[in-house]
Amino acid sequence: MPVESIHGRAATRNDTPLRFNLMERVVDGDWLDSVEELDGIPKRRTSVTIERPKTVLTRNHSPDIGFDRSVNPYRGCEHGCIYCFARPTHAYHDLSPGVDFESRLFAKPDAAGLLHAELSKKGYEAAPIALGTNTDPYQPIEGRYKITRSILQTLFEVKHPFTITTKSDRVLRDLDIIAPAARMGIAAVAISVTSLDPKVHRTLEPRAPAPRKRIAAIRQLTEAGVPVYLSVSPVVPHITDMEMEAIVQAGAEAGATNGFFLPVRLPHEVAPLFKAWLQENYPERARKVMATIRDLRGGKDNDPRFFSRLRGQGVWAELFRKRFDKACRDHGLGRRKARLNSELFTPPQGKQLRLF
């Protein structure tokens, strides 16, 4: 990318998506940062576009996923995790799954109101709503927009069960909602920790909070009575897999009661982005990493089949599973799924929720 700096970004490329036969974009100088400079090269700044969807509750029927509905307050994610399987969704907007995904974000400020309308529909039956299934609900812009918080307020008001998956200690800001919801049995949080190594973290997840902050968040959530799941995800062969046992130990000592892991996935445009990242940061082991990933994925960069996509296959998948299971046994980390109470749900009355 000769026109901009990639400092602080995980993706090393910003190719125009080709899968949808979209026309090539022209870079608009209005959204390049003309003030901040690094080594004399304009630095990409983050822009946010307001999105006004008609609905916000997304349904899925995937047999290998433990929830059937979710809410995503944002599109794109400034955390910039190079392995993020959600990157290809930016191609639908004629934007690159590369640096655009990390810097050109979409926010849904009406999400809580739209969710209120969904929950008010006649015949609606409650089941846990998942937040953080696509992009992180606590990425940096949440500090300004507070969309995730407004969603949690709506769910708590009607006693609707919810789960949160995040890489951010910013979740602690909403403990005043999450903790009482957890005491009612309608809330659980999963904290994702990919690496404890600051050097690996800086390139793999450049704008996500440091691993030590996430471990500290597990401790504070647990102390507040919130059930916390440790997500060792994704496991990247020869980059982070050697840390699996240490991450489980750190999470268990911080108070996590259950855990799970997922091997890295490289769907669509994620594969070339990940390969470019490897060449930039780990050229000496790039071929070895990709060879192991292909072994996990039946000889391909990615395996999209249900169940297999979350588990992998072959000797490496079996090795990771056995290592993780042993680490969980050694440190008292369970493998149970969240059992949240859906019977407390009280449908909203009227057009507005009661004020706190």
Rank of each mutant, 00 (worst) to 15 (best):
K322C: 00
V158S: 03
I177D: 03
S168W: 04
R287I: 12
I186C: 09
R214L: 07
R207C: 00
G29H: 09
P63G: 11
A117S: 13
K300M: 09
A250W: 00
L32H: 14
P348T: 14
V264P: 01
F20P: 08
R183K: 11
V200N: 08
Q249S: 14
V289W: 06
L175V: 01
F274T: 02
H79S: 00
G255R: 02
R309C: 08
A256H: 05
P17W: 03
K159Y: 10
G40S: 07
A111S: 10
M184D: 05
K351V: 02
M184V: 00
A208M: 02
I50E: 14
L115F: 06
A246N: 07
F306E: 15
A86R: 10
L204M: 14
K121N: 13
P42S: 15
G98L: 08
G113Q: 14
V26K: 14
P128Y: 08
V193T: 05
I215T: 12
F261H: 13
R219M: 14
V200Y: 05
I218H: 07
S231R: 12
F162E: 07
F261E: 09
A130K: 03
R104E: 04
V315T: 07
A216W: 10
I164Y: 08
T163L: 04
K146P: 05
P272E: 12
R183L: 03
P198K: 05
A224P: 09
E223G: 04
H61E: 13
F156Q: 13
R339Q: 09
E243N: 13
I218V: 15
E102S: 11
V270F: 10
A181G: 07
D174S: 08
S47V: 14
K337H: 15
T55P: 00
I6K: 05
R9E: 02
Y282I: 08
L57Q: 10
T148I: 05
L296H: 10
A224T: 08
D33E: 10
D68G: 10
H79R: 03
P237H: 01
E36P: 09
A11H: 03
T292G: 13
R170M: 12
R305E: 01
E243W: 09
K122W: 01
F260A: 11
S342K: 06
R219K: 15
R219I: 15
M244Y: 12
D136M: 14
K337S: 15
H160L: 03
L262M: 15
I247T: 08
L131D: 06
T240R: 06
A224F: 07
W316L: 00
I65L: 10
P237M: 05
T89F: 12
L230K: 06
F306S: 15
S168H: 04
V189D: 07
R19W: 13
